[in-house]
Design a binder for these strands. Structure first.
Lengths: 338, 338
DNA sequence: AACGTTCGTGCGAACGTTCGCCAAGATGAG
DNA sequence: CTCATCTTGGCGAACGTTCGCACGAACGTT
């Protein structure tokens, strides 16, 4: 049960409870004998400091907020498992925990939730994800000087803490690799929305092609939502082009899209990796088990999560200078789909 | 900033701070005039009760613990997004939040983490997932009378709170459907491990076949880990059987396995849904976008999450009698793969 | 006019910590 | 033998709430 409090320990050890506190926090000189006795009793009673009381005293909840968007209870946005796990792990190492909260709108920009949580001191800071252009949250949190770190920068000229992965570089590498493999007509299946990330990755494509002296056919770029079907539709569209304009390689901005593209290409009788090259982005678990295994881009997600967490905790504890920004480089993973 | 406390509001409204508290908690008769004044000032100062102080006073952290297993920082187990979201949502409706913590071993049975968290009163209870036979956590939590609810029952004869989905019924329905469609030689690709869930689903298969007077060929059951490749290996194995023993339908215990099975079958030149029937279990997002769309079993995950959360909160608040057990029925989703 | 009742508030205490200051007793130097 | 210093530990206060009890005033009842 561990109902024992400082007073219980103190009573049994014959000292004042404040002394017990000091001993257990190693900030008191007491005689070795007393210390031994106190520790012994604490151990015997299985004493554990009450975290809530500590939090009150220390004016900190030791909790980090992370929004989980949803419109009503119905829809929800999947969270990035891998990222979150490394955040949780890093937080815990410093005595903090991550707590989820839901926002009314799916886009996470429901300011009231943030205001309330921080106003009530339920959390010491926030981790933002899925940031958008003109993100209300960023403006609000900056204005209120509430600690936060975003995973994903925005194009605006705001000076705040973020960690991001260089999508420009990732797609640039993909295009570079495809060019090296002799491809000349390279297509892109991208998103319609998702401003920052989208623009970033598309720039990687355009830049590398331009450097190679290739002017992309406007029909080579197909856009849709981030779903498997978009990949399939993209392929159908691309294969409908006349022979001489038809691409031999297709760059997809996500593995999900690539899966659809591969399926559709196979359905059209093409052998992926031979008749047509297809690449993805993210290196999802499934990527290596697909047929053929998918050439894709792996983001250093674990590292990103750890950085985000430590940056936020540093900010909260005042041990780092803010703002800080970190741009990580992703890595090309070559398999046989391209 | 919202630094205002009860005392600030009280001072400005010319009453004692305890009165402010009572008014705001609606548990005091005060004159309408005083109430109006207090509310006005509270609003003006943007007062929010300090959650940590409330928690200390109320002897409750209003936090629910949820373990995220990992061996070191490297590996991690994906969490069930859908389930978690509905848990978070239901908790929040009652003023509780969900917090993650990591356990040393992947199997989540690191008792120390639970002991410590509850001992320090950092959480009011736990939600268990991925329960195993002879689950140390269940034994420990029961013995210590720590509130918890498990998503997933175990076969042992322990009386605790759980919510589960009837895997027996799910697979039974699948087999039933396949029989109706005229299949006689029905195979099963299952897990090697995962005692309770596995046994449950397998029973559904065996029972329905037995009821139909079919004695399953022992070669019809293939087992492996829960990965795409297992499905592929299973199909290779099944197709290697002589014509008259070769199954015309394959029941997979997860969509992941089914994906592998479908890929392999297609690679062998079979048309899935026509030459061979393949079914999955889970109805993952991707299922409807596969080629052909996958016939599978959908679990009422949202409902399960909500039930788990409410059962736990009821237990914590002492408003429900424990233990309670709920077994939910899954639903067959017919598409064209079978 | 004396006496319960209800209403509207105030007040003390408690939840379990941490932190700084102060007081004995022991120790050493002059 | 006295005075400064160090060691050891006690004590009060504070963090921001909630809750029960008490108390004066107003009110209605005998």
């Amino acid at each position: 049960m561990s109902r024992a409090t400082l007073k219980d320990v103190a009573a049994k050890a014959g000292v004042s409870y404040q002394t017990v506190s000091k001993v257990l926090n190693r900030r008191a000189q007491v005689s070795p004998e007393t210390e031994r006795r106190i520790r012994h009793v604490a151990n015997e009673l299985n004493y554990r400091p009450n975290a809530v009381a500590q939090n009150l005293r220390q004016q900190s909840s030791h909790l980090i907020g992370y929004a989980w968007g949803s419109g009503g209870s119905k829809t929800w946005r999947p969270v990035n498992n891998r990222f979150l796990h490394s955040v949780v792990y890093a937080c815990e190492a410093q005595g903090y925990f991550l707590t989820f909260f839901t926002t009314k709108d799916e886009s996470l920009t429901d300011i009231k939730a943030y205001e309330d949580l921080y106003g009530r001191r339920q959390v010491d800071g926030f981790i933002l994800e899925n940031t958008t252009e003109n993100d209300l949250r960023i403006h609000y949190l900056l204005a209120e000087k509430i600690p936060f770190v975003a995973f994903g920068r925005v194009e605006e000229d705001l000076d705040f803490c973020w960690v991001d992965v260089d999508g420009y570089y990732g797609i640039y590498c993909v295009a570079d690799y495809l060019l090296q493999r002799g491809h000349q007509r390279i297509a892109l299946i991208s998103w319609q929305r998702g401003a920052t990330t989208r623009n970033d990755r598309e720039r990687g494509y355009y830049c590398r092609l331009q450097e190679a002296g290739i002017v992309p056919d406007s029909a080579w770029v197909y856009r849709g939502v981030n779903e498997i079907e978009t990949g399939a539709r993209g392929i159908i569209h691309l294969l409908s082009l006349p022979q001489e304009r038809r691409p031999t390689a297709v760059v997809c901005v996500s593995d999900q899209i690539a899966v659809g593209a591969m399926n559709a290409a196979m359905a059209e009788g093409l052998e992926v990796g031979k008749d047509i090259a297809i690449t993805g982005y993210d290196d999802i678990n499934m990527a290596q088990f697909l047929h053929p295994p998918l050439t894709t881009v792996r983001q250093p997600i674990d590292e990103a999560g750890e950085l985000v967490a430590n940056m936020l905790l540093g900010q909260i504890n005042g041990t780092i200078a803010v703002p800080q920004q970190v741009l990580l480089k992703p890595e090309l993973v070559i398999r046989s789909s391209a």
